[in-house]
Amino acid sequence: MSERAIIATGIALFLAAACFPFYRNAAAPPRPLVLPLPAGERECIAPVAYMRASHGDLLLAWRDRVVRSGERVFTAPDGRVRELSLTRTCLGCHEKAAFCDRCHDYVAIGPDCWNCHVDPRRPQ
């Protein structure tokens, strides 16, 4: 076989392999992640769109209110008074492994909340 043919075959194989993710996604587009919601609860402390987009900012604001200002409770938009607590309020409903971790894995971010804060369902 001539050198030209070998090189052309090599380039073709390389392109086929390099473009594999594109074919694969074209064949079966990635499905959006569906997260399990707490049974028996109809709404989070704020509307879903806000929670989806801004729960990180919300938690940072809570953190500063508790740690810096000593405020421990707040009134949610639905009128319920709740504790400003990741462990007790958020994880009181949501399951960390099935809810927080799954989505954070999906979008490939690693918040460092859990270096210190503890999942009450799996304390160790």
Binding site: T87, V118, P120, P123
Partner: peptide, 12 residues
């Protein structure tokens, strides 16, 4: 030995 989830641990 046991962790009380009501209070955070600290980190390195």
């Amino acid at each position: 030995r046991t962790i009380d989830p009501a209070y955070p641990t600290r980190t390195k």
